[in-house]
């Protein structure tokens, strides 16, 4: 499979890296805080999720922020993720995360429009060692939703 640096570092990705959206160390109030580390690369990511459970409808992503120390792919992907999931029902956000995961593993493109800038990470699939970077933020989100459903506020995960 041919692959060029432009596949990996699309302009949209570099834009999220340079001008991160929803990157913050705090979110008040928040319902869940998760910390995800990828010891192999040293990437660390904190994600805070505020769940909007007012009204009669299903709980939604009220707000989500991330902060961390990692490569451009991991930080830009987390940034794009926050835009794609804010306002979505938790189950829907989870489903979108699964669509992103499948895309990163080259298993098809679903919900292309809903992923917004997340689609730009398709090219990362051609760089197998960097796929985990792109997934870090989405895995943190999935974990945050799971942690919330379990009735907990904190969770720390170390990826192997």
């Amino acid at each position: 499979m041919s692959s060029s640096l432009d596949d990996l570092y699309q302009e949209i990705i570099l834009d999220h890296y340079r001008k991160p959206r929803h990157r913050a160390a705090e979110l008040e109030p928040h319902d869940v805080h998760v910390h995800h580390a990828n010891p192999l690369c040293g990437d660390e990511l904190d994600l805070r999720l505020q769940v909007d459970s007012t009204g009669s409808s299903a709980p939604r992503v009220g707000a989500v922020v991330y902060d961390g120390d990692g490569c451009s792919i991991s930080m830009a992907s987390a940034s794009a993720m926050t835009e794609a999931v804010t306002g979505r029902e938790l189950a829907d956000a989870d489903d979108l995360g699964e669509a992103f995961r499948l895309m990163m593993h080259g298993e098809g493109l679903k919900r292309e429009d809903d992923l917004l800038d997340g689609v730009a990470f398709q090219g990362v699939a051609k760089f197998p060692v960097r796929v985990k970077c792109a997934l870090l933020g989405w895995m943190a989100l999935k974990d945050a939703i799971g942690t919330y459903r379990d009735g907990n506020q904190e969770h720390r995960v170390t990826h192997e």
């Binding site: 640096l5 990996l8 690369c41 040293g42 990692g70 490569c71 451009s72 792919i73 760089f127 960097r130 970077c133």
Partner: peptide
């Protein structure tokens, strides 16, 4: 810059 970005380029 992150070492992984440097290493990839």
């Amino acid at each position: 810059l992150h070492p992984h970005d440097i290493g990839t380029i």
